[in-house]
Design a protein around this nucleic acid. Structure first.
Length: 343
DNA sequence: TTAGTATT
DNA sequence: CATAATACTAAA
């Protein structure tokens, strides 16, 4: 019996393999969107398929994906996926999991050097045979070797229970606040959204001296490896390979930066799309009227939501894109006229 | 400058 | 035709 989770897994796997194959990114995205749609179903997909209209009634299901999922439901097997798996080694997906290595690099390693797994990559690196691969310079090879070493030490990265990350967060944010140039510091991301597990810890700081703050952050004793360090953000591995991202912004952008850095990604896409439809641009630096490029919000997170006609949405409710419609009752509809100036 | 990878 | 916007790094 094929259940919803099987369909989600199958569609996601197709997307990953198509990506390594270098397929049109809209096609890849289509499979991911269809997978997300099935994941959000509250009933067995077989039931949807059986009813009038069938799978095509689901958002994100066009003729091609509907046909494939029908085949999977009916005979418990999808030839299209089998063909892809015959073409592309499954172990390449693990290569893509290395930080800094994505589908294009994995495809290059495979096609140019026949590397199809982490073990083969490690052997090739040790033998020095990565040199000479097109678009793979010395620095890239160094990064790959470092990533392989980190993985051997810590194993594959896994999400951690939120409770296991709390001590890190409660130690890090006050430490950042105690720096001379830092005004504010808070954990954001899925930690702030109170997800049960988190993939990494995101910390936002406001400062006029981002470089100094990020320099301090990247040289903390518990930092095992610096992944990237630029002028506005720094990502490190600490605490057995757990990733911690620090983003620094000017104090007047703290609200919009918190909005951005809290996510979720789907929530941000909806918020930014809504801004566009209202003739505005939303990014981590503020909310801007496109006409005249005038900044109208961003100092506070609440100000961003209200300028977009929404009430402030608690982080826990920002998990899915639909939250804006479900919970973000329009301020215009709910507030009384005399409160209008508060926006 | 651009491609690739990354972040929410 | 297709959901947003931006940052960092290495290679060319």
């Amino acid at each position: 019996m094929v259940d919803n989770a099987d369909v989600v897994h199958t569609l996601g796997r197709i997307a990953d393999l198509l990506e390594i194959r270098g397929e049109n990114s809209f096609k890849v995205r289509a499979y991911r969107m269809a997978a997300a749609r099935v994941e959000s179903l509250t009933e067995p997909i077989a039931g949807v398929a059986a009813r009038d209209g069938g799978l095509r009634r689901l958002d994100g299901f066009g003729p091609a994906i509907a046909e494939k999922v029908t085949e999977l439901l009916n005979i418990g097997h999808l030839q299209y996926l089998a063909d892809l798996e015959a073409e592309i080694p499954a172990a390449l997906l693990a290569v893509c999991e290395l930080p800094g290595v994505g589908p294009r690099t994995a495809a290059t390693l495979w096609r140019e050097a026949g590397i199809a797994s982490l073990d083969e990559l490690e052997a090739a690196a040790a033998a020095g045979s990565l040199e000479g691969i097109p678009r793979l310079g010395t620095r890239s090879i160094e990064r790959i070797v470092a990533a392989l070493e980190a993985r051997r030490r810590n194993g594959a990265r896994e999400r951690r229970p939120r409770g296991r990350v709390v001590p890190l967060a409660v130690a890090l944010t006050p430490a950042l606040r105690s720096l001379p140039d830092v005004e504010r510091a808070h954990a954001a991301g899925s930690f702030r959204r109170k997800r049960e597990t988190v993939k990494d810890l995101d910390v936002l700081v406001s400062t006029r001296e981002p470089r100094a703050v990020l320099q301090w952050f990247s040289t903390l004793p518990s930092v095992e490896r610096v992944l990237v360090r630029g002028s506005t953000k720094c990502s490190v591995e600490a605490d057995s390979g757990f990733q911690v991202d620090c983003r620094a912004v000017a104090p007047e952008a703290y609200g919009s930066a918190m909005q951005y850095f809290t996510g979720s990604r789907a929530h941000n896409i909806r918020m930014r799309g809504r801004a566009l439809r209202m003739g505005m641009l939303l990014n981590e630096y503020g909310l801007f009227l496109i006409e005249g490029n005038r900044r109208i919000a961003g100092d506070t997170e609440r100000g961003v939501y209200e300028a977009l006609g929404l009430r402030w949405i608690p982080p826990e409710e920002r998990e899915h894109g639909g939250d804006i419609e479900l919970t973000g009752a329009s301020v215009r509809r709910t507030r009384r006229p005399q409160e209008a100036e508060a926006v």
